[in-house]
Protein backbone atom coordinates (compact mmCIF):
# COMPACT_ATOMS: atom_id res chain seq x y z
CA UNK A 1 0.00 0.00 0.00
CA UNK A 2 1.39 3.39 -0.94
CA UNK A 3 1.43 5.81 1.95
CA UNK A 4 0.15 9.22 1.03
CA UNK A 5 0.26 12.68 2.51
CA UNK A 6 3.84 13.58 3.37
CA UNK A 7 6.96 12.90 1.35
CA UNK A 8 9.07 10.29 3.15
CA UNK A 9 12.24 12.41 3.01
CA UNK A 10 12.06 15.30 5.44
CA UNK A 11 14.01 17.96 3.46
CA UNK A 12 11.81 17.29 0.43
CA UNK A 13 8.65 17.36 2.58
CA UNK A 14 9.70 20.76 3.95
CA UNK A 15 10.29 22.10 0.44
CA UNK A 16 6.84 20.84 -0.56
CA UNK A 17 5.37 22.67 2.44
CA UNK A 18 7.04 25.82 1.15
CA UNK A 19 5.55 25.17 -2.30
CA UNK A 20 2.07 24.99 -0.80
CA UNK A 21 2.67 28.15 1.20
CA UNK A 22 3.74 29.87 -2.02
CA UNK A 23 0.40 28.96 -3.58
CA UNK A 24 1.65 26.12 -5.78
CA UNK A 25 -0.16 22.79 -6.04
CA UNK A 26 1.51 19.69 -4.65
CA UNK A 27 0.03 16.67 -6.37
CA UNK A 28 0.77 13.10 -5.36
CA UNK A 29 1.24 10.57 -8.15
CA UNK A 30 3.02 7.52 -6.67
CA UNK A 31 3.86 6.00 -10.02
CA UNK A 32 7.28 4.75 -11.01
CA UNK A 33 9.93 6.89 -9.35
CA UNK A 34 7.62 9.89 -9.11
CA UNK A 35 6.21 10.63 -5.70
CA UNK A 36 4.35 13.53 -7.24
CA UNK A 37 4.79 16.97 -8.73
CA UNK A 38 4.64 20.63 -7.87
CA UNK A 39 2.52 22.58 -10.29
CA UNK A 40 2.02 26.25 -10.94
CA UNK A 41 -1.63 26.67 -11.82
CA UNK A 42 -1.00 30.08 -13.37
CA UNK A 43 1.37 28.88 -16.06
CA UNK A 44 0.68 25.14 -15.97
CA UNK A 45 4.35 24.20 -15.57
CA UNK A 46 5.22 21.44 -13.12
CA UNK A 47 8.33 19.82 -11.69
CA UNK A 48 8.51 16.09 -10.99
CA UNK A 49 9.27 15.10 -7.39
CA UNK A 50 11.06 11.78 -6.97
CA UNK A 51 10.25 9.37 -4.14
CA UNK A 52 13.91 8.50 -3.60
CA UNK A 53 16.13 11.25 -4.96
CA UNK A 54 19.86 10.67 -4.85
CA UNK A 55 20.29 13.53 -2.38
CA UNK A 56 17.36 14.78 -0.31
CA UNK A 57 18.79 18.24 0.34
CA UNK A 58 19.60 18.84 -3.33
CA UNK A 59 16.17 17.69 -4.47
CA UNK A 60 14.66 20.06 -1.90
CA UNK A 61 16.78 22.88 -3.35
CA UNK A 62 15.59 22.02 -6.84
CA UNK A 63 11.99 22.30 -5.67
CA UNK A 64 12.69 25.64 -4.00
CA UNK A 65 14.37 26.92 -7.19
CA UNK A 66 11.17 25.97 -9.01
CA UNK A 67 9.11 27.85 -6.43
CA UNK A 68 11.30 30.92 -6.92
CA UNK A 69 10.61 30.86 -10.65
CA UNK A 70 6.86 30.72 -10.04
CA UNK A 71 6.38 33.48 -7.54
CA UNK A 72 4.01 35.41 -9.82
Amino acid sequence: MVSTGRHPRNPVAQALDAAKQAGLDVIEIHKGHRWGKVECDRCGVSVAVFSTPKDDDNHAKQIVRFIAKHVH
Binding site: P11, Q14, A15, D17, A18, A22, A60, K61, V64, R65, I67, A68, V71
Partner: peptide
Protein backbone atom coordinates in the same frame (compact mmCIF):
# COMPACT_ATOMS: atom_id res chain seq x y z
CA UNK B 1 15.93 36.02 -1.10
CA UNK B 2 13.05 35.34 -3.47
CA UNK B 3 12.13 32.31 -1.37
CA UNK B 4 13.22 31.54 2.18
CA UNK B 5 11.95 28.28 3.64
CA UNK B 6 13.96 28.70 6.81
CA UNK B 7 16.35 25.98 5.60
CA UNK B 8 16.84 26.95 1.95
CA UNK B 9 17.20 30.47 0.54
CA UNK B 10 16.99 31.10 -3.18
Amino acid sequence: PIVDTGKIRV
